[in-house]
Amino acid sequence: MTTKPTRTAAVRLARTAAVRLARTTAAELVKLRGLPAILGTALGTVVTGAFLAVALASSAPTATDATDVVTHTVLFLQIGPILIGVLAVATEYAGRQIATTLTATPNRRLLLAGKAAAYLIVATATSVTTIVAGLAAAQLTLIARDRAAEAREFDPWPAAGAVTYLVLIGVLALALATLLRSLIPPLVGMLTVVLVVSPLLSGYTEHARWLPDRAGGLLYLPTTDPVLGARTGTIVLLTWIALTGSAAIAAFRSRDA
């Protein structure tokens, strides 16, 4: 007898929540689109991806496979999603836009969910375009050099893994920027880890495999580690995201704007 109205109320509540999340995500997308730095980063990442693929495919003496070429460019391409993730948050704190944001969307959890969703949409579109452009550029270059391997079955998984990795490493950057509410510290921190600490450390200690980018890298280079595989590597990267993300959400919800 009493279940019917309760269920209708629950459905209505869920619908309201969905409408609010859609609205907040749409607002965050308009916000990202209005920032020239975001558009520039997205475009720059795609162009760099194609350019690096051509450069690598035409210079590496042993290159015969487009996927192989593209997965070797991810080390540099990750700068793109990291920048997008950091900029999406840091621009809130330049000029105190955050006050406008929080007066329009006072629910902190809803705001962060909308921000993350908008980031995922932009970063996924950018990463898919970049990897596809890279594959096409590499393949065309290999064909032009007459080096393309015999047409065998195309394995889409390393490319899909590269896209997933690019999107996820930027989520970590977004979480770190939310925690630090600034531009330079999270940006320098992320870039130092993925471009300096991780390559250096991996020469010294096998524990470097637990770093977020090393572990996540197994998504597109799955056979390079004796301990972690693609699945466990992804779990390690997701754990980094979960830890940083929880700290960021807790801080964002409790502190003054």
Partner: peptide, 25 residues
Amino acid sequence: SMLDGSGAHRSRTARNHLAWVARAG
């Protein structure tokens, strides 16, 4: 409400700023 100044990021246009606020609200 309005607190100190525009409350908009300097690199966006006035219209873009109002567009996202309208969407959010």
